[in-house]
Computed example of a mutant assay.
Amino acid sequence: MVTDKAGKQLNIMTEYLFRKLSGMIAVTEVMKSAFSVVCTDKVRFAKGDYIVQPGHDFRSVYLIVDGWATRSKLTSNGARQIINFAVPGDILCFNAALFDKAEVYVQAHTSLDAFSIPIRPFSDLLNNQPQLAVALAWTAAQEEGVVSERLVSLGRRSARQRAAHLLCEIHRRLQVVDLVRSGEQFQMPLTQEDLADSLGISMIHTNRVLRDLVRSGLIAMERNSVRLLDLDRLREICEFSDDYLHFPDERTK
């Protein structure tokens, strides 16, 4: 059991992960203690730092403590498609336990604090804690669901629906780790360029869509934060269902 001062501090820093996992499994002190063994190296990435790049060897698995990251691909002419965003409690480079090289850019979108977990100890953790391993594999599988929905958005949803869907998705993911404040407000450190690169539309079109959502009384935007003024309507516009996120915790439904 983790009982010392350092252990208590570790529990605080990994609380977002265990808040998320608590909907999947009964998190025990034994699991937390086992996780503490591999979370010994805390690192900080400056905004814009690449954590890993396509074709490069994985160095570690990372657990985000604070900050946001992006997973993206670049075309030959430098155009960026953001695949998804990673937030506190998310694990980066989970595939390092299976593959040698990365296939996407993983980049610190803000200043980012994370635990850098060596690949071999992380693999041992999965082998020695099968219930925890299943829960962690669920978080990795969830990423596949996000990518599938992004593909549907890019191929079949209007720009307005894409924006509404992305906002609902981010809200839901942050809600599960208790990062949504009263009034459905949450921090969202994304520029219009970031949103455009995620939605697959131009910045001009992105600006137009966001202004439309504001004028319609659906959202309010401030610097680095968003308030969803009419969540039910927003979900209706894009036919949002969180089934693809596979959150089993009924407390946050």
Rank of each mutant, 00 (worst) to 15 (best):
M31R: 08
A220H: 11
M1D: 03
R211L: 12
I201R: 04
R215M: 11
V52A: 02
D100P: 04
H56I: 01
L199E: 01
R181C: 00
P130E: 08
S202Y: 11
S72G: 06
L229D: 11
L166D: 05
K253V: 12
K47V: 05
D4S: 06
A86T: 00
K42F: 10
D232S: 08
R251M: 09
G89D: 04
M203Q: 14
L92N: 08
E149M: 15
N11Y: 08
P121L: 08
V176S: 04
R156K: 11
Y244G: 08
D100Y: 08
F247I: 15
F18S: 07
F240I: 07
F85V: 06
N127Q: 13
N95C: 03
V214F: 08
C39K: 07
A140G: 00
G145M: 02
R173P: 06
R235C: 12
L234Y: 05
L92R: 00
R227N: 07
M188G: 01
L63D: 06
V27T: 08
I91E: 07
K20Q: 12
R150F: 02
P130L: 09
I64H: 05
D178V: 00
V152A: 05
G145N: 03
Q192H: 12
A97I: 14
E169T: 15
R80G: 10
N77Y: 08
F35V: 05
G183A: 03
A102H: 04
M188T: 00
N128K: 14
R211Q: 14
L125P: 07
A46L: 10
M24W: 13
G55I: 00
D178P: 04
V37N: 10
Q81K: 12
R160D: 06
E184F: 00
L125C: 07
V214D: 10
E169N: 09
